[in-house]
Amino acid sequence: MTTSVVCRIATEAEWRSAQETGSVPQRDIDVKDGYMHLSTKSQALETANIHFAGHDDLLLLEIPIAPIAEFVKFELAPKRGEEFPHLYAPLKAADIARVVRLIDTPDGFKFGECL
């Protein structure tokens, strides 16, 4: 898959923690699976709708793929039937190029303003 940006959905608390510690925190599923779950920008809203319904504090962390490319593998997610980027390294706060608020609407999440 060709993409110049990959994304991490994070809560505001996770982003604050990343800014304080320098690393985006892993979730239990990341630790269990052995990699950090990411999405492409085109996959992000569906991912938010499936896994984060009801959250009103979500952010999309956009990461240029070039600096982390050697640690990213696009692998099939059988439940979704498509390949997703998986990061096999820590995600540093310094790797984040842009932060976009995700707005929960009655029709699902939408991209909001850049922070």
Rank of each mutant, 00 (worst) to 15 (best):
H55E: 07
V24F: 08
I96T: 04
F109A: 09
K92I: 05
K79M: 12
A18I: 07
E14G: 09
D30T: 08
T105N: 07
F84R: 15
E82L: 15
G108E: 09
S23P: 00
L87P: 06
L115T: 08
D30R: 03
M1K: 06
G81N: 11
E75L: 14
R8P: 11
K110M: 09
K79E: 14
F111D: 00
Q26A: 03
F109C: 06
Q43I: 06
D95Q: 04
C7N: 04
L102I: 04
R16E: 14
I50N: 03
D57K: 01
E14H: 10
L45M: 13
P78K: 02
P25W: 03
M1C: 10
T2S: 13
E14V: 07
R8F: 12
A13P: 00
A13F: 10
D104R: 09
I96E: 03
T3E: 15
G34W: 08
T40N: 11
R80C: 02
D104W: 05
D33F: 15
G81D: 08
T105K: 01
H86D: 12
I65E: 04
F52G: 00
L58E: 10
T47K: 02
T40G: 12
V72N: 07
Q43S: 10
A69N: 06
G22E: 14
D30I: 05
E14R: 12
L60K: 05
P67W: 14
L102H: 09
D56S: 12
K73C: 13
W15M: 15
R98M: 11
G34L: 05
K92W: 02
E12S: 01
A13L: 07
I29T: 11
F111E: 07
D107I: 08
K73E: 15
S39D: 12
A69T: 08
